[in-house]
Design a protein around this nucleic acid. Structure first.
Lengths: 213, 213
DNA sequence: TAGATTGTTAATCGATTAACAATC
DNA sequence: TAGATTGTTAATCGATTAACAATC
């Protein structure tokens, strides 16, 4: 359906989705690009351009149906699918995501956690028992695994990702501080917390240099 | 020193910093924009443009000193400063960051954790006792607090951020799934994990539609 | 119908890439 | 000096904004 969609648009889609969910919760049925733009701090023009990457969903003289657009963008994002996720690394990040209650409701389900540390193997994270990483190959072959969350040390992430690729996994949510080198047919999304914090630090330095302009 | 720096450049700075640290670890002393570009998957031209936002740090016919450039970018990012951070919310995300061992070595130190849940207050996270949020005002007045990590439910994040702003906090690392509305003189960096996962989901949908192009 | 607001084309703006003189 | 590579200007490309005809 959608042809080429720029990275800039893709990054904005989840924000559209979130704001539309909020509007729905507030009982708003209809919204114009103008009003949605004010809410999201985007121009009305940009909102219309973005939405029209995926086809005409508004009605002239009326605006957009909040529910309709939310459903539509949810479908584009694929959150109406159930994604089965395994977590590699039973450390704090892995546990934090596994026990987050916001993902299971949104199409993402953690089906297993793996670690190689005997201290962690066998422990319980919100009802999921951390397994020995030796079981990884068998598990992936016997179950559907859409996404692998990599929350292992940087040193291990590349080889582990390659191993998972060999087992057929094609979606990687990478929390390790490195750039994975994988074939073209995988989807990777990075969460580099260290880099995020460095950007914050940079912004704070800038504020110091240009106080109250 | 640096004039206007585009958001695109800012977002790349931590990646420069990481790659230069890696090169240093590998014992590389000097690198050209060409070679650094291949490593970072950027064009040599872009690398020279980026670096020259902050002044000439290379030497014609030679390239860049790895150590010198790493130090320089570290300084630009402000990671040679010590940033004192408090964590709001003693849940899994807060605990994961607090117990991460990669931040304390890089100029960021967690000095306190606050929660309003009696079950969490008094528990120990890597030597830091979770405090009652009632103590927040006093703590911030008695200590230096550069950054507040917001790992509380979305509903509480805005009012809590405003409260912290009132106490003088100007740096916010926001993990709550909403856009904070704060005065111009604050620095905010968002980590929206739910949005990151949605982007991954979108990319996976696209791969399905255009297999092996 | 008249008013409002979209979908879409054109204009602008900014970021990336290319080119090359300066210089180590 | 000759070769290499930067710093910087110019050209290209892409994304955002503006404008307006189509239409609900």
């Amino acid at each position: 359906m959608a042809g080429y969609v720029s990275e800039a648009v893709i990054k904005r889609l989840p924000s559209y989705y979130r704001h539309l969910k909020e509007l729905e919760r507030e009982g708003v049925n209809q919204i114009s690009s103008q009003d949605l733009g004010e809410r999201m701090r985007l121009t009305a023009s940009q909102i219309r351009q973005d939405i029209n990457c995926f086809g005409g969903f508004g009605r002239q003289g009326y605006g957009y149906s909040v529910e309709g657009l939310r459903e539509h963008i949810g479908h584009i994002l694929g959150v109406d699918h159930l994604h089965k996720m395994i977590i590699l690394g039973g450390g704090n990040i892995g546990r934090a995501i596994a026990s987050s209650n916001s993902f299971p409701n949104n199409g993402f389900e953690t089906v297993a956690i793996f670690d190689n540390d005997p201290k962690k193997i066998g422990t319980d994270v919100e009802g999921i028992i951390v397994q020995d990483i030796c079981n990884l190959e068998r598990f992936v072959h016997e179950h559907t695994v859409d996404i692998a969350l990599l929350a292992v040390p940087a040193m291990r992430a590349q080889s582990l990702a390659e191993e998972l690729y060999g087992y057929g996994v094609r979606g990687f949510w990478n929390f390790a501080p490195l750039d994975l080198k994988l074939p073209e047919d995988v989807s990777v999304e990075n969460v580099h917390l260290d880099e995020s914090l460095e950007v914050l630090s940079f912004r704070m330095m800038q504020q110091l240099c240009s106080p109250m302009l």
